[in-house]
């Protein structure tokens, strides 16, 4: 049984101008200990998918529907408030994009890690604090005691992101959602944080969902890739296959347009046009207006998500 099992998830936000379809029929399953990268641009629905699984979107306005949305056997669509609180942080933990705004500014880092531990386990404050210090040491913070006593505004982004990772791991979750965990950080810090997440994932044996817009992050950290565009999954494949032989035209175009692939000042292969407007998405395949090989039926009908092999699947009319 997969740890996370989503079938046909849709998330929509009714607005004045019409309904914004953020996620349109996403299916995704993650096995225990597996690391999956969800790659997509802004508006692709990658973050909303993760937020929907943990029911972290405000409902209403958000409307979530799915044929199935199970996390460690718990039906997250019908889960009670208490069940949700028990799952969040304990079964699935989350690391967010901007560490500078992710902590409550009026409490110390120590307070915020301790309250997480004590929300899920009956341990004393001092025990929890000791655990928090150990966790901070594990995320390569050299002065755990000083950091425990610090307020968020006193720390750098890199330090806060380490503390957030420590906090996420504090209840030994079975799966970690990392939503663009390095985007807000400096380049050298980015690499360090990625390395850290990778190491901890192996050490804790937990599943990992790495949400990112950066193919480089995916190349560094995950086993399997899910490529999203316009609220739909375009392609899924083992990470090496995605880089060696991308099947979907969107994935191919994305790969080709990556800057810095070869030496020398040069024009890049560009994808024309802009990402689809989520409140007025194109008909058929969401990528067809920008696709170099689009045909008439691409605009008319949404291509089915078909398996190419035991490990690969894609949604494109041109693929067998």
């Amino acid at each position: 049984m997969p740890l996370l099992d989503i079938e046909n998830l849709t998330v929509s936000f009714p607005q004045h101008e019409g309904v914004v379809q953020a996620v349109r029929g996403v299916s995704l399953s993650v096995a225990a200990g597996e690391s999956v990268g969800i790659v997509g641009e802004s508006g692709s629905g990658k973050s909303v998918t993760c937020m929907a699984v943990l029911r972290l979107l405000r409902e209403p306005p958000a409307r979530i529907a799915a044929d199935k949305m199970e996390l460690a056997g718990v039906n997250m669509l019908t889960a009670s408030r208490a069940q949700l609180s028990a799952s969040r942080g304990r079964v699935a933990a989350m690391v967010f994009q901007d560490p500078m705004t992710a902590f409550d500014p009026v409490f110390t880092i120590g307070h915020q890690i301790v309250e997480t531990i004590r929300a899920h386990r009956k341990v004393s404050k001092s025990e929890a604090r000791g655990e928090a210090a150990n966790l901070l040491a594990r995320v390569e913070i050299k002065t755990p005691e000083a950091i425990l006593n610090s307020y968020p505004h006193q720390l750098s982004g890199g330090m806060l992101q380490r503390a957030m990772i420590a906090m996420a791991l504090s209840c030994r979750p079975q799966i970690l959602f990392a939503d663009e965990p390095t985007t807000a950080l400096d380049v050298t810090i980015q690499a360090q944080i990625l390395q850290l997440i990778k190491d901890l994932q192996a050490e804790f044996g937990m599943g990992l969902i790495m949400v990112t817009h950066d193919l480089g992050v995916v190349a560094e950290t995950v086993d399997r890739v899910v490529v999203m565009y316009g609220g739909r999954v375009m392609e899924t494949a083992p990470v090496q296959d995605i880089f060696d032989a991308p099947a979907h035209p969107y994935t191919q175009a994305l790969m080709a347009s990556m800057p810095g692939r070869s030496a020398g000042k040069q024009r890049l292969v560009e994808i024309p046009g802009a990402s689809p407007n989520p409140s007025n998405p194109p008909s058929g395949c969401p990528f067809h207006p920008r696709c170099a090989v689009a045909e008439a039926r691409c605009a008319a009908q949404v291509p089915a998500f078909k398996s190419q092999s035991a490990t690969r699947a894609a949604a494109c009319w041109r693929l067998p």
Binding site: S85, S87, T116, M164
Partner: peptide
Amino acid sequence: TKPFVTVLRAKGLSERRIIFQHVLRNAAL
């Protein structure tokens, strides 16, 4: 609407604790 409130929810804190300990304290400022 601050991001840290979402983080508090994602940690599995009860809604009551989030409101009375975190949101009120920040709103008091």
